[in-house]
Design a protein around this nucleic acid. Sequence first.
RNA 1: UGACCCAUGGUGUAACGGUAGCACUACAGAUUUUGGUUCUGUCUGUUAAGGUUCGAAUCCUUAUGGGUCAACCA
Length: 554
Amino acid sequence: MSEITKPSLNFIEEIIEEDLKSGKHQGRVHTRFPPEPNGYLHIGHAKAICINFGLALKYGGKTNLRFDDTNPTTEDTEYVDAIKNDVNWLGFQWEGEALYASDYFSQLYEYAIDLIKKGLAFVDDSSPEEIAEMKKNPSEPGIDSPYKSRSIEENLQLFQDMKAGKYPDGSKVLRVKVDMASPNMHMRDPIIYRIKHETHHRTGDQWCIYPMYDFAHGQSDSIEGITHSLCSLEFIHHRPLYDWLIQKLDIFPSRQIEFARMNVTYMITSKRKLLKLVTEGFVTGWDDPRMPTISGMRRRGYPAEAIRTFCDKAGVAKRDNTIEIELLESCVRDVLNRTADRKMVVLDPIVLTITNYPEGKSEVMFGDANPEDENSGFTEMPFGRQLYIERDDFMEDAPKKYFRLTPGGNVRLKNAYIIQCDNCIKDENGEVTEVLATYFPDSKSGEDNSGIKAKGTIHWVSVEHGVPCTVRNYNRLFTVPNPDDFEEEGKSIFDFYNPESLIINENAIMEPALKGAVAGTQLQFLRKGYYVVDADSTEEKMVFNQTVSLKEGW
RNA sequence: UGACCCAUGGUGUAACGGUAGCACUACAGAUUUUGGUUCUGUCUGUUAAGGUUCGAAUCCUUAUGGGUCAACCA
């Protein structure tokens, strides 16, 4: 409306706005997300979900969730619930009940009969090999099947017999008569029905013939009144057939629009390869936090909101693209910075003793729960003479730019006192086992009159009160950004598996307030990164997964 | 070697014949009781060659490069 701030539209939005302007479909926008229930959803699906649901939301339309279940041999109900759950978790709700292409099997059968009656479809007895042979190749026109000239009556009878189960799998197919000379292979009398004596996850043994994708998808779109049917670029060659069938059937004209699917560095989306990562034990399961699956990202602690803004920022276009995972991580940090409470956890502990702090004394220190959120309140944590600090927050011989603990140097203990490092104790191997320091009593956080300024600030956990926990840290799953790029060199993605993709701190120490935190709780471990409470946590020992590290400087 | 799709900094995406912008990344600086956040700045771009035009990233042609299509998969 406002010409002043004209937001730039992607090409799909442009098409929709043109349709809206011309009054097409009475200004209705209806999209659909059509997963095949034969695997878990991944980042690529997330993109498709965000586009389809996002567009409907933007233009006051609706989005259907429709399971594309036309192949009983690969599909299973097992995936249906997981897919629904993932869509909901991402923050979207489909229109009405979930739909299934299999809901339309009877209608589709009628459509096929209609085509036969119009002389546009025929039953072919040729073998798969013979059919492939007759189709020839893209640069050479195909030749007609010898069965193409059967009469309408014969085709009708044969097709009914196919449905009745009179023929074995693979013995006959129903094809449409389009154009065997077309340079588009999908137009060379494509198969629209095949025989499969197989139990379907929803229709059971009711059918032994099943429609092909090309005779199910577009027709389902049409039946549902889908106005804009969005799919990935690889389906572009199917569009002429999509339109041809709708026209010949004279049904609601849904429009297919193709966009480039999104690739992300260090992530793969091949169903086969993902499965292999799981079965070969490279990861612990489909929801391993290193997996690019929606369930994996959820367990990793990525907020749904961050995934949505990521898909939005990645944009929509028709050129091949690979988004850097850093953009995703940036979106994740952006959300978590505002929402995650800060906690102190020492991942690799070493003892710090404050020699001038009274033995047996203990105080409670206060700090902002989240300095970026004024409504977050504050947290409190017990302080004492002995604290755990990170091993790498002490350095005996430190470079100039190192401003943490080093003999003679000062550092602020976050939310507590400034201390001066005096010395350290080493074992027989020269390993530092304890750091000794003195504190400045008048430097307490919030009431600092010391006038001392500390170079850096470090986090800590009281030895007396700290609780052991497990912290799982994650690095990139692969050692190269695009492991798929090396297939021509004979290398597989597994050659680039990063053995350090999971690093576990079994002896981390957390502040006591973390006890009993609920799985899924997102936190910032001060100076370390964002972490989420994992469902593996027990009464005895909490388990945290690293979501993403903090950006690291120096 | 048939047809189709695509080509803007390192990555992604705008500019719809009229100043090549934004985000992420990288780097530098300021602020900071998180080496986080925030703020400021810097680097890097229209695949090429012709043509149309007062003017081209944008329109036309050709070339080059990348991708897709020949499953009874979706």
